[in-house]
Amino acid sequence: MDHLRAMRVFLRVAELGSLTAASEDLGYAKGAASAILKELERHLGVQLVERTTRSLRLTEDGRAYAERARKILDDVTMLEDDIGSAERSPRGLLRVQIPPGLARAILAPALPSFIETYPEVEVHILSRNSLPDFVGDRLDAAVFAGEVPDRDLTARSVGRLPVLTVASPAYLAARGAPKVPADLANHATVAILSSATGAPVPWRFREGEEAVVQMPGGPLAFESAEAGVAAASRGGGLLQVASYLVYNEIRSGRLVPVLNSFRPQGVELRILHPRHRLKPRKLRVFEDFLIELNETTRRKWRISEADWDPAIGAPTFSPSE
Protein backbone atom coordinates (compact mmCIF):
# COMPACT_ATOMS: atom_id res chain seq x y z
CA MET A 1 0.00 0.00 0.00
CA ASP A 2 1.17 3.51 -0.83
CA HIS A 3 0.89 5.04 2.64
CA LEU A 4 1.36 8.67 1.58
CA ARG A 5 -1.27 8.35 -1.14
CA ALA A 6 -3.67 6.73 1.34
CA MET A 7 -3.12 9.60 3.79
CA ARG A 8 -3.80 12.18 1.07
CA VAL A 9 -6.99 10.43 0.01
CA PHE A 10 -8.22 10.05 3.59
CA LEU A 11 -7.60 13.73 4.38
CA ARG A 12 -9.39 14.84 1.22
CA VAL A 13 -12.35 12.61 2.12
CA ALA A 14 -12.38 14.17 5.59
CA GLU A 15 -12.21 17.70 4.19
CA LEU A 16 -14.86 17.26 1.49
CA GLY A 17 -17.12 14.89 3.40
CA SER A 18 -17.65 12.75 0.31
CA LEU A 19 -15.87 9.77 -1.23
CA THR A 20 -17.10 10.66 -4.72
CA ALA A 21 -16.03 14.30 -4.39
CA ALA A 22 -12.61 13.22 -3.12
CA SER A 23 -12.11 10.89 -6.10
CA GLU A 24 -13.09 13.65 -8.54
CA ASP A 25 -10.94 16.25 -6.80
CA LEU A 26 -7.87 14.01 -6.85
CA GLY A 27 -8.42 12.95 -10.44
CA TYR A 28 -9.16 9.30 -9.60
CA ALA A 29 -11.76 7.02 -11.13
CA LYS A 30 -15.14 6.89 -9.42
CA GLY A 31 -14.94 4.62 -6.40
CA ALA A 32 -11.15 4.81 -6.11
CA ALA A 33 -11.21 6.87 -2.91
CA SER A 34 -13.58 4.36 -1.30
CA ALA A 35 -11.30 1.45 -2.20
CA ILE A 36 -8.18 3.21 -0.91
CA LEU A 37 -9.91 4.19 2.33
CA LYS A 38 -11.10 0.62 2.93
CA GLU A 39 -7.57 -0.68 2.34
CA LEU A 40 -6.19 1.88 4.80
CA GLU A 41 -8.74 0.89 7.45
CA ARG A 42 -7.90 -2.80 6.99
CA HIS A 43 -4.21 -2.03 7.32
CA LEU A 44 -4.72 -0.04 10.52
CA GLY A 45 -7.32 -2.39 11.95
CA VAL A 46 -9.65 0.46 12.92
CA GLN A 47 -12.60 2.30 11.41
CA LEU A 48 -11.64 5.86 10.43
CA VAL A 49 -14.95 6.99 8.95
CA GLU A 50 -18.57 6.30 9.85
CA ARG A 51 -20.57 6.07 6.63
CA THR A 52 -24.28 6.72 6.22
CA THR A 53 -26.34 7.07 3.04
CA ARG A 54 -26.12 10.86 3.32
CA SER A 55 -22.90 11.77 5.08
CA LEU A 56 -19.49 10.78 6.38
CA ARG A 57 -18.21 11.43 9.87
CA LEU A 58 -14.77 10.80 11.31
CA THR A 59 -14.54 8.41 14.22
CA GLU A 60 -12.40 9.25 17.23
CA ASP A 61 -9.59 7.19 15.68
CA GLY A 62 -10.20 8.98 12.40
CA ARG A 63 -9.79 12.41 13.99
CA ALA A 64 -6.56 11.35 15.69
CA TYR A 65 -5.23 9.83 12.46
CA ALA A 66 -6.17 12.95 10.46
CA GLU A 67 -4.23 15.21 12.82
CA ARG A 68 -1.07 13.11 12.66
CA ALA A 69 -1.37 12.37 8.92
CA ARG A 70 -1.72 16.06 8.09
CA LYS A 71 1.48 16.85 9.98
CA ILE A 72 3.33 14.00 8.26
CA LEU A 73 2.25 15.15 4.80
CA ASP A 74 3.16 18.75 5.61
CA ASP A 75 6.60 17.61 6.77
CA VAL A 76 7.08 15.59 3.56
CA THR A 77 6.02 18.56 1.43
CA MET A 78 8.39 20.90 3.27
CA LEU A 79 11.24 18.41 3.04
CA GLU A 80 10.80 17.95 -0.70
CA ASP A 81 10.38 21.68 -1.13
CA ASP A 82 13.48 22.66 0.82
CA ILE A 83 15.93 20.01 -0.36
CA GLY A 84 18.00 21.64 -3.05
CA SER A 85 15.92 24.85 -2.78
CA ALA A 86 18.96 27.01 -3.37
CA GLU A 87 19.36 25.48 -6.82
CA ARG A 88 15.70 24.79 -7.62
CA SER A 89 12.94 27.32 -8.10
CA PRO A 90 9.71 27.00 -6.09
CA ARG A 91 7.10 25.10 -8.04
CA GLY A 92 3.49 23.97 -8.02
CA LEU A 93 -0.01 25.39 -7.95
CA LEU A 94 -0.79 28.27 -5.58
CA ARG A 95 -4.43 29.20 -4.94
CA VAL A 96 -4.97 32.53 -3.18
CA GLN A 97 -8.15 34.47 -2.38
CA ILE A 98 -7.91 38.27 -2.50
CA PRO A 99 -10.46 41.13 -2.50
CA PRO A 100 -11.48 42.00 -6.10
CA GLY A 101 -10.40 45.65 -5.99
CA LEU A 102 -7.00 44.77 -4.60
CA ALA A 103 -6.57 42.03 -7.18
CA ARG A 104 -7.49 44.30 -10.07
CA ALA A 105 -5.67 47.48 -9.07
CA ILE A 106 -2.50 46.14 -7.45
CA LEU A 107 -1.91 42.41 -7.73
CA ALA A 108 -2.90 41.55 -11.31
CA PRO A 109 -0.57 44.11 -12.97
CA ALA A 110 2.37 42.82 -10.88
CA LEU A 111 1.80 39.06 -11.23
CA PRO A 112 3.62 38.72 -14.57
CA SER A 113 6.84 39.83 -12.86
CA PHE A 114 6.31 37.22 -10.14
CA ILE A 115 5.83 34.48 -12.74
CA GLU A 116 8.92 35.70 -14.59
CA THR A 117 10.92 35.29 -11.37
CA TYR A 118 9.31 31.96 -10.44
CA PRO A 119 8.27 30.33 -13.74
CA GLU A 120 7.49 26.95 -12.15
CA VAL A 121 4.76 28.40 -9.90
CA GLU A 122 1.20 28.48 -11.24
CA VAL A 123 -0.99 31.09 -9.53
CA HIS A 124 -4.79 30.90 -9.35
CA ILE A 125 -6.40 34.05 -7.89
CA LEU A 126 -9.94 33.89 -6.50
CA SER A 127 -11.30 37.46 -6.35
CA ARG A 128 -13.80 37.51 -3.50
CA ASN A 129 -14.80 39.70 -0.57
CA SER A 130 -16.22 36.78 1.42
CA LEU A 131 -14.55 34.94 4.28
CA PRO A 132 -12.11 32.37 2.87
CA ASP A 133 -13.14 28.73 2.62
CA PHE A 134 -9.76 27.00 2.72
CA VAL A 135 -11.18 23.50 2.37
CA GLY A 136 -13.95 23.96 -0.18
CA ASP A 137 -11.91 26.29 -2.41
CA ARG A 138 -8.62 24.40 -1.86
CA LEU A 139 -6.92 27.65 -0.85
CA ASP A 140 -3.28 27.91 0.12
CA ALA A 141 -3.71 31.42 1.51
CA ALA A 142 -6.05 34.39 1.58
CA VAL A 143 -5.33 38.10 1.66
CA PHE A 144 -7.65 39.76 4.17
CA ALA A 145 -8.13 43.34 5.32
CA GLY A 146 -9.03 43.92 8.96
CA GLU A 147 -9.23 41.66 11.97
CA VAL A 148 -8.36 37.97 11.58
CA PRO A 149 -11.73 36.17 11.40
CA ASP A 150 -10.66 32.76 12.76
CA ARG A 151 -8.32 31.79 15.58
CA ASP A 152 -7.32 28.64 13.67
CA LEU A 153 -5.57 30.81 11.10
CA THR A 154 -2.10 32.28 11.22
CA ALA A 155 -1.67 35.80 9.91
CA ARG A 156 1.38 37.53 8.47
CA SER A 157 1.16 41.29 8.12
CA VAL A 158 1.59 42.70 4.63
CA GLY A 159 1.38 46.27 5.89
CA ARG A 160 -1.26 48.94 6.16
CA LEU A 161 -3.47 50.14 3.34
CA PRO A 162 -3.88 53.95 3.35
CA VAL A 163 -7.51 54.96 3.86
CA LEU A 164 -9.23 58.09 2.55
CA THR A 165 -12.62 59.68 3.12
CA VAL A 166 -14.01 61.12 -0.10
CA ALA A 167 -17.07 62.65 -1.75
CA SER A 168 -17.99 63.96 -5.18
CA PRO A 169 -17.64 67.68 -5.98
CA ALA A 170 -21.39 67.82 -6.69
CA TYR A 171 -22.23 66.40 -3.26
CA LEU A 172 -19.87 68.82 -1.50
CA ALA A 173 -21.27 71.76 -3.44
CA ALA A 174 -24.77 70.83 -2.29
CA ARG A 175 -24.09 69.74 1.30
CA GLY A 176 -20.74 71.26 2.20
CA ALA A 177 -17.66 69.43 3.48
CA PRO A 178 -17.46 68.00 7.00
CA LYS A 179 -14.97 69.79 9.24
CA VAL A 180 -14.59 67.10 11.94
CA PRO A 181 -15.58 63.40 12.11
CA ALA A 182 -18.60 64.21 14.28
CA ASP A 183 -20.08 66.13 11.32
CA LEU A 184 -20.80 62.79 9.64
CA ALA A 185 -24.08 62.70 11.57
CA ASN A 186 -25.32 65.48 9.28
CA HIS A 187 -24.21 63.84 6.02
CA ALA A 188 -25.29 61.05 3.73
CA THR A 189 -22.76 58.22 3.73
CA VAL A 190 -21.98 55.24 1.52
CA ALA A 191 -21.09 52.32 3.79
CA ILE A 192 -19.23 49.10 2.99
CA LEU A 193 -20.68 45.93 4.49
CA SER A 194 -18.31 43.61 6.37
CA SER A 195 -17.91 40.16 4.84
CA ALA A 196 -17.49 38.79 8.37
CA THR A 197 -20.54 40.34 10.06
CA GLY A 198 -22.75 41.74 7.31
CA ALA A 199 -22.86 45.06 9.19
CA PRO A 200 -21.43 48.37 7.94
CA VAL A 201 -17.69 48.70 8.52
CA PRO A 202 -16.97 51.44 11.10
CA TRP A 203 -15.12 54.53 9.86
CA ARG A 204 -11.90 55.31 11.67
CA PHE A 205 -10.14 58.63 12.17
CA ARG A 206 -7.37 60.10 14.28
CA GLU A 207 -7.71 63.25 16.36
CA GLY A 208 -4.22 63.96 17.61
CA GLU A 209 -3.09 60.74 19.28
CA GLU A 210 -6.61 59.43 19.79
CA ALA A 211 -8.43 56.98 17.54
CA VAL A 212 -12.00 57.99 16.73
CA VAL A 213 -14.67 55.62 15.43
CA GLN A 214 -17.81 56.77 13.63
CA MET A 215 -20.54 54.56 12.22
CA PRO A 216 -21.70 55.54 8.73
CA GLY A 217 -25.42 56.28 8.86
CA GLY A 218 -26.34 55.51 5.27
CA PRO A 219 -28.65 55.54 3.45
CA LEU A 220 -26.50 53.47 1.06
CA ALA A 221 -24.44 50.37 1.87
CA PHE A 222 -22.70 47.90 -0.44
CA GLU A 223 -20.89 44.62 0.01
CA SER A 224 -18.69 45.60 -2.93
CA ALA A 225 -16.32 48.50 -2.31
CA GLU A 226 -16.18 49.15 -6.06
CA ALA A 227 -19.96 49.64 -6.10
CA GLY A 228 -19.61 52.07 -3.21
CA VAL A 229 -17.02 54.06 -5.15
CA ALA A 230 -19.38 54.25 -8.13
CA ALA A 231 -22.25 55.49 -5.94
CA ALA A 232 -20.10 58.11 -4.20
CA SER A 233 -18.77 59.33 -7.56
CA ARG A 234 -22.36 60.08 -8.60
CA GLY A 235 -23.14 62.12 -5.51
CA GLY A 236 -24.36 59.34 -3.18
CA GLY A 237 -22.56 60.71 -0.14
CA LEU A 238 -19.31 60.46 1.79
CA LEU A 239 -17.29 57.26 1.50
CA GLN A 240 -14.29 55.82 3.36
CA VAL A 241 -12.22 53.20 1.54
CA ALA A 242 -8.62 52.16 0.86
CA SER A 243 -6.90 54.80 -1.25
CA TYR A 244 -6.08 52.46 -4.14
CA LEU A 245 -9.81 52.09 -4.83
CA VAL A 246 -10.29 55.82 -5.45
CA TYR A 247 -6.88 56.76 -6.87
CA ASN A 248 -8.12 57.21 -10.44
CA GLU A 249 -11.32 58.95 -9.34
CA ILE A 250 -9.34 61.50 -7.34
CA ARG A 251 -6.90 62.14 -10.19
CA SER A 252 -9.80 62.71 -12.59
CA GLY A 253 -11.68 64.97 -10.16
CA ARG A 254 -14.70 62.65 -9.78
CA LEU A 255 -13.98 62.37 -6.05
CA VAL A 256 -12.40 64.79 -3.58
CA PRO A 257 -10.79 63.78 -0.25
CA VAL A 258 -12.22 65.34 2.93
CA LEU A 259 -11.27 65.29 6.62
CA ASN A 260 -7.63 65.20 5.58
CA SER A 261 -6.33 66.17 9.02
CA PHE A 262 -8.11 63.20 10.60
CA ARG A 263 -6.87 60.42 8.31
CA PRO A 264 -6.39 57.12 10.19
CA GLN A 265 -3.31 54.91 10.14
CA GLY A 266 -4.99 52.66 7.61
CA VAL A 267 -6.38 49.16 7.61
CA GLU A 268 -4.08 46.23 8.33
CA LEU A 269 -3.63 43.85 5.40
CA ARG A 270 -2.75 40.25 6.30
CA ILE A 271 -2.02 36.96 4.56
CA LEU A 272 -4.02 34.18 6.22
CA HIS A 273 -2.98 30.55 6.29
CA PRO A 274 -4.44 27.54 8.17
CA ARG A 275 -2.57 27.07 11.44
CA HIS A 276 -2.33 23.30 11.07
CA ARG A 277 -0.55 23.48 7.70
CA LEU A 278 3.11 24.18 7.11
CA LYS A 279 3.98 26.77 4.49
CA PRO A 280 5.56 25.46 1.30
CA ARG A 281 8.31 27.53 -0.26
CA LYS A 282 6.04 28.68 -3.11
CA LEU A 283 3.79 30.37 -0.53
CA ARG A 284 6.67 31.89 1.41
CA VAL A 285 8.11 33.58 -1.68
CA PHE A 286 4.62 34.77 -2.65
CA GLU A 287 4.17 36.34 0.78
CA ASP A 288 7.51 38.14 0.42
CA PHE A 289 6.40 39.35 -3.01
CA LEU A 290 3.12 40.75 -1.62
CA ILE A 291 4.89 42.59 1.20
CA GLU A 292 7.32 44.21 -1.21
CA LEU A 293 4.48 45.02 -3.62
CA ASN A 294 2.45 46.71 -0.89
CA GLU A 295 5.38 48.90 0.13
CA THR A 296 6.06 49.85 -3.50
CA THR A 297 2.40 50.72 -3.94
CA ARG A 298 2.35 52.84 -0.77
CA ARG A 299 5.34 54.83 -2.03
CA LYS A 300 3.74 55.31 -5.44
CA TRP A 301 0.32 56.34 -4.15
CA ARG A 302 1.30 58.06 -0.92
CA ILE A 303 -0.48 61.37 -0.45
CA SER A 304 1.16 63.61 2.12
CA GLU A 305 -0.28 66.73 3.72
CA ALA A 306 1.82 68.79 1.31
CA ASP A 307 -0.14 67.30 -1.59
CA TRP A 308 -3.38 68.99 -0.55
CA ASP A 309 -4.45 72.37 -1.88
CA PRO A 310 -6.58 73.79 0.94
CA ALA A 311 -8.15 76.36 -1.38
CA ILE A 312 -9.93 73.73 -3.46
CA GLY A 313 -9.70 70.67 -1.21
CA ALA A 314 -8.22 68.50 -3.96
CA PRO A 315 -4.83 66.81 -4.21
CA THR A 316 -2.05 67.82 -6.53
CA PHE A 317 -0.73 64.44 -7.61
CA SER A 318 2.77 63.84 -8.80
CA PRO A 319 3.19 60.04 -8.37
CA SER A 320 5.44 57.92 -10.51
CA GLU A 321 3.57 56.06 -13.23
Rank of each mutant, 00 (worst) to 15 (best):
N248K: 12
N186G: 11
V180P: 00
V229D: 02
R156Q: 12
E209G: 06
G236Q: 02
G253I: 09
P178N: 08
S195A: 15
V212D: 02
E207W: 04
P200Y: 12
L220R: 12
E226H: 06
I192K: 13
W203S: 04
A231N: 02
Q214E: 11
V190F: 13
E209H: 10
G235H: 06
S252A: 13
L164K: 10
V213C: 09
V241I: 07
A170K: 14
V213W: 12
A242T: 03
E249N: 14
A196M: 06
L238M: 04
G236V: 00
A173R: 15
P200H: 07
A225R: 09
Y171R: 10
K179H: 03
V166R: 09
R160D: 04
P200A: 05
G218Q: 05
N248H: 13
P200R: 09
E210T: 08
E210V: 05
S168V: 05
A177L: 07
L193E: 12
D152W: 11
L238Y: 06
V212T: 01
V158C: 15
A191R: 02
A155R: 04
L255M: 10
V163Q: 14
T165N: 07
E223L: 05
G208V: 06
S243G: 07
F205T: 12
R234Q: 07
G218M: 07
T197D: 14
Y244W: 11
V213F: 12
G217A: 08
V212G: 04
L239M: 01
P219Q: 12
A242N: 05
A174N: 14
A177W: 05
L239T: 01
L184T: 06
S194N: 07
V213E: 15
I250E: 15
